[in-house]
Design a binder for these strands. Structure first.
Lengths: 311, 311
DNA sequence: TGGCATATACTCATCCGGAGAAAAACAAAT
DNA sequence: ATTTGTTTTTCTCCGGATGAGTATATGCCA
C-alpha cells in the first residue's frame, strides 16, 4: 500500500483503552476490575487526551487516586461486529499494563481481585494446583487426540508439552499467554463460546477477551521482572528481603530459593540497607531495605548477550 | 472509567498500519521503503480485513509478492491534528515488524534501503562510526549542559552515558530507540522540527515519525534474536555458519567472536549439517547447514531465569 | 532455658561466557 | 613445490554466575 491512501478510511471506528492495573499486597497479586470482577477497566480514548499513554494515565488517576509509576503498552487488536448498531463498526482495543500500590481509594464500581482467581493454573507457589492434573491435562489431552491428522496431532502434543511442562519438560512461568490460548482453543474456557464447557471451573471468566488481556499482562510482567527492576513500583518504600521475595514469588507464581534470591539481589546492588530492623517477622528480626534510586537508570537495560567481539 | 462509556466515542478516527519489513542480504540489513526512501510503507486498515495482522499481511503480500514468515506488532500511537481537514481528527498508527527475504518483485514505487542509511550510528561492525565522535557526542554534550538545573543535568548525563556507552560504559546494541529519542530531544535530527539542525548529516530522515518506528523495529529485532531463533526467516534454506554469523552481525551492528558464536549455535542445536560443502569462500571450504525445523517450537521460549526452588 | 521460626551466611560443584591460540583445508602467488 | 593468505574449525583456559544444599545467628514465646 503506497502512501496517499492513508487518509481514505471512513468506516466507523471506536478506540478503547483497557488497563491491567497490578498491585501486590502480602503475597497476593491483584488487578483492578469492574462489573463485580467480570471485566477489566476500559474507557474510550477521548478528544482531550494528548496521547494514548496520557489518556490511560488520566483515567487511571481518576479510578485509583494514584498514578501508576510504570505504564507499558501491551497489545492492540481490532474487532469487527462488536457494536450492536446496524452500522458496520470497528473497535480498536489498546491494552496497557500499569503497576501501582494497593493504597488509595477506588470508585465503588471497581475492586481489586486476586489475579490467580482468573488463572488458577498459574499459581504454583506452594503446591502444583490440583486442577492441572484433574482438569487441564485431561482436557488438553482430549484436544490433542481430537485431530485425525497425525502430524497435526504431533504438533498439538508438542505445543501442549511446551506450554504445560509435560513429557519431562520444565514449567516455564513466562508462557502465560500460550497456556491461556491453548485452553481457549481446546474449548476448556467459557469464553470460547458455545463450544466452551461452562461446567469446568477453570478460574473465573471475564467479559469478551479481558481474561486474555490479563494473561498478556501477567506474561509481560513475569518476563520483565527478570531483567528490569520494575518490582520497585509494587513495593513500599521500605521493606525486608523476604517481602521482596514474596512479591516476586507472587508475580512469578513460583517459590524462589531464598539464599540464591538474596545473592541475586545483592550482587545486582538493587537495594541498600536502611539500618533499621523489622522485628515482627515471627523469627529473627530482618533488616529493612530500600531500593537504590540510581539503579533505575543503571539497570534500565541489561538483557541477554551475544558473543560480541571486543577490540 | 467504568464500563458503559465504551461506545461513546464519535470523533473522526482513522487507522493506519505501518510496516517495518526487513531482509538481510550479504551483510546488509534492509527495509522496504516508499517515496524514494522517505517513508515506510503504510496503509489504512480496511473493512475487509478480519484482524490487524491479517490486514497487514494482506497488503504486505501485495507489495512484496512474498508473505513474511514472521510478523509482530511493534507499537500503537495516536496523534491529534494530523489531518488537513478542519474537522478534528485523530490518527491511530499501528506499527508492525515483518521478516522476509529480499527476493520477489516489488512495486515500482517501493524499494529496499539499507537501514543504517537512516541510523548510521548503529553500525559498529568494522569500525566505530566517525560521526559518533564527530557529531553525536558533541551534540549530546551540548544538550546535557543546556540545562541549568544541576540534578536535571546529571540525569541527562547519565541517560546519555547509558544510551551511547560513555563514561566507560559499554555500548548496548539494544538501545536503538533510546538513542534515537535522545538525538531527537537534543534537536540533532531534522524530524525534530524547526529546532532540528538540518545541517547535521545524521543519517537520512524520514517523514513524520517513520524513522522512530524503524528504530523501534530494529530494537525489537536485536532483542529478539538473542532468545528466539527468528534469524530463520532472514536466511536462505541452506547456508554456512559464516553467512549466519554475518546476518546476525548485520542486525546487531557489531562483530561477533566467531568461535563463541559457533559454540552458541551448536550448543543450542539450532542447525544441522547438510553434508554438502561450500567451496567459494576464499579460504577453507565451509560446511553447509540448514535450520532444524523442530527448533522452531522447542526454543520458541527460553528466556532468562529466576532462582526457582525445585522440589 | 529450650524450642521455634525466621534471617542471614557460607560452601561446593557445575555450567556458561569471554578471550585467545592454534590447527586444518583450500586457493593463489612465487 | 613451496609459501602465503584466508577462512573454517577445534581447543583450552579462566572467571564469574547459578543451582543446590547446609550451617549459623537472633529474636520471640512457652
Amino acid at each position: 500500500m503506497t502512501k496517499g491512501h492513508t487518509d481514505s478510511i471512513s468506516q466507523s471506528v471506536s478506540v478503547e483503552l483497557i488497563a491491567v492495573l497490578v498491585a501486590v499486597t502480602n503475597g497476593q497479586p491483584k488487578v483492578i476490575t469492574v462489573s463485580s470482577g467480570d471485566a477489566l477497566p476500559a474507557g474510550p480514548l477521548e478528544e482531550s487526551h494528548k496521547s494514548l499513554q496520557a489518556g490511560l494515565r488520566a483515567w487511571v488517576a481518576d479510578q485509583t487516586g494514584r498514578r501508576p509509576g510504570f505504564v507499558e503498552q501491551l497489545y492492540t487488536f481490532a474487532d469487527r461486529d462488536r457494536g450492536h448498531s446496524e452500522k458496520y463498526t470497528r473497535q480498536i482495543s489498546i491494552s496497557y499494563l500499569g503497576l501501582t500500590g494497593e493504597d488509595g481509594p477506588l470508585l465503588a464500581s471497581t475492586s481489586w481481585r486476586g489475579w490467580y482467581g482468573y488463572l488458577p493454573w498459574e499459581d504454583r507457589r506452594d503446591t502444583v494446583p490440583a486442577l492441572l492434573k484433574d482438569i487441564v491435562e485431561p482436557g488438553v489431552q482430549r484436544w490433542v487426540i481430537a485431530t485425525k491428522d497425525a502430524s497435526a496431532r504431533q504438533a498439538r502434543r508438542e505445543r501442549a508439552a511446551i506450554a504445560f511442562g509435560l513429557d519431562g519438560r520444565n514449567w516455564n512461568e513466562d508462557l502465560v499467554l500460550q497456556r491461556y490460548e491453548l485452553l481457549f482453543e481446546a474449548g476448556l474456557l467459557p469464553e470460547a463460546g458455545p463450544a466452551g464447557r461452562r461446567s469446568l471451573r477453570l478460574g473465573s471468566p471475564m467479559e469478551a477477551d479481558h481474561r486474555r488481556i490479563l494473561a498478556t499482562g501477567i506474561a509481560r510482567l513475569r518476563a520483565k521482572i527478570k531483567y528490569n527492576p520494575v518490582v520497585f513500583e509494587l513495593m513500599p518504600p521500605i521493606f525486608t528481603l523476604q517481602q521482596l521475595q514474596q512479591c516476586v514469588e507472587a508475580i512469578a507464581g513460583a517459590n524462589l530459593h531464598t539464599p540464591n534470591f538474596r545473592r541475586l539481589i545483592e550482587q545486582q546492588q538493587l537495594v541498600e540497607a536502611t539500618g533499621a530492623m523489622v522485628a515482627d517477622t515471627g523469627g529473627r528480626p530482618a533488616r529493612a531495605y530500600r531500593f537504590r534510586a540510581e539503579v533505575k537508570e543503571e539497570r534500565a537495560a541489561v538483557g541477554a548477550r551475544l558473543p560480541i567481539a571486543r577490540a
